[in-house]
Simulated scan of single mutants.
Amino acid sequence: MPPKIILITGANSGIGLAAAKALTSASTNYHVIISARSLSKAQIAKAEVEAENPSSASRLSIVQLDVTDGASIKYAQVFVEKEFGHLDALINNAAIASGDPDIYTRYKVCMDTNVVGPAVIADVFRPLLLKSSNPYSIFVSSGAGSFGRAVERFSGTRDKPPEPKNGGAYHVSKAALNMLALREHHMYVDKGLKVFAFSPGFVVSNLRGTSNELRTGWGKAGPASVAGETLLSILDGKRDLDVGKLVYKDGVYDW
């Protein structure tokens, strides 16, 4: 049986890289396409995965893909179609958090990368997904985008974490991403597309910045490998009862 073809955006670090490692280590059933904004970053990520699991070399590909660049997205789509002919899963993982003091810049950066980019990626690659007999579309979101959790937080029924500097734009963008996932689910569930919004939790990532302090969330972030294993469980079909929902490691969040 040929391996399932998985494309991960922003797979050069954090959750995307952890997912690539988890998928290629689990079995030979997955071929992972590592995409990143620059080919050099994708090459470095590929080398890191291979170093930890030398047998994965034949089940890894790389492609340059900037989710905010239409030409780059089209190039990646042509590459995938030419090399593989279809996709079995698309993990829309690339994201950014902006602390820019200018509110226009802050919101535009977050919305362009976290919402517009995934919307375009999903639209461009969906025809390839629908060629699969069991396609998955996963939007890496955040519990911070859940309206239900936000209501609890704002009402004071949950412990209030410190508000990040110039926060808000990231949370709003993830709420919008959740709507994007929900709409795709309702539009394509009858065609067999299994759509998930996925909250990885507070894990080590370059999302907040590249310094050790920011990557580790001031020492409070958990390992990204946990998110990678949860994504593996989704693609293994273990969370199929939660299709069309905002899932996390231990369950489901309210929208």
Rank of each mutant, 00 (worst) to 15 (best):
L65E: 02
Y170L: 09
S199L: 05
S133G: 13
L39R: 10
A176N: 06
N212Q: 14
E163P: 05
A89G: 15
T105Y: 02
T9C: 06
G85F: 15
G16D: 08
T68H: 04
Y170T: 03
V203K: 09
P161Y: 05
W255E: 01
W218M: 00
D236E: 10
E163L: 13
R208M: 08
V120I: 14
S55C: 02
G217Q: 00
K245I: 04
G16V: 05
F139H: 11
Y248R: 08
F154V: 01
G251F: 06
I138M: 04
N93H: 14
V226Y: 02
Y136V: 08
T105P: 01
G10H: 01
V203S: 09
F154M: 04
V109K: 14
A76H: 13
G10S: 05
N114E: 07
S133N: 15
A22K: 04
N92K: 15
D190M: 02
I8A: 13
L87V: 14
F196R: 01
S146V: 09
V172F: 09
Y107C: 14
V49M: 12
C110A: 14
V124T: 10
T105F: 01
A227D: 08
S56M: 07
V116C: 04
A26N: 15
K220F: 02
Y248L: 10
A71V: 14
D190P: 00
G156R: 00
F198Q: 03
A71C: 08
S25C: 03
A97R: 02
A51T: 11
G209W: 09
E52K: 11
S137K: 01
S61P: 08
K191G: 03
F198K: 06
G192N: 05
Y248E: 10
L180K: 05
Y104T: 06
E229Y: 07
A150D: 12
R106C: 08
G209M: 04
A20G: 00
S142N: 11
N29A: 05
I5N: 05
H185S: 00
Y188A: 00
G209T: 04
I91G: 09
D66N: 13
G219S: 06
V189W: 08
S132Y: 13
A197Y: 02
R215N: 08
K249N: 05
G237V: 11
V189S: 13
D254A: 10
N93L: 12
D254R: 05
Y136G: 07
P223R: 00
V243K: 02
Y136D: 07
A19P: 05
K220R: 11
R149L: 15
S205T: 15
L207K: 03
P54A: 02
L23S: 04
K165Y: 02
A97P: 01
K82R: 15
H185P: 00
L241R: 04
C110S: 12
S211I: 11
I6H: 12
S133E: 15
R37I: 11
D240I: 06
F79A: 06
H186P: 01
D102N: 13
L17C: 01
G70E: 08
F154D: 00
L90G: 15
S173V: 10
I138C: 03
F139Y: 14
K4M: 03
S27R: 06
L231M: 10
T113E: 13
I96D: 04
D236H: 00
A169F: 03
L180E: 09
A71M: 13
K160Q: 11
L128N: 10
L182I: 02
N93V: 07
G14E: 05
P127T: 06
L235F: 09
Y248N: 11
M1C: 05
P54C: 07
V67P: 12
G209C: 08
V80M: 14
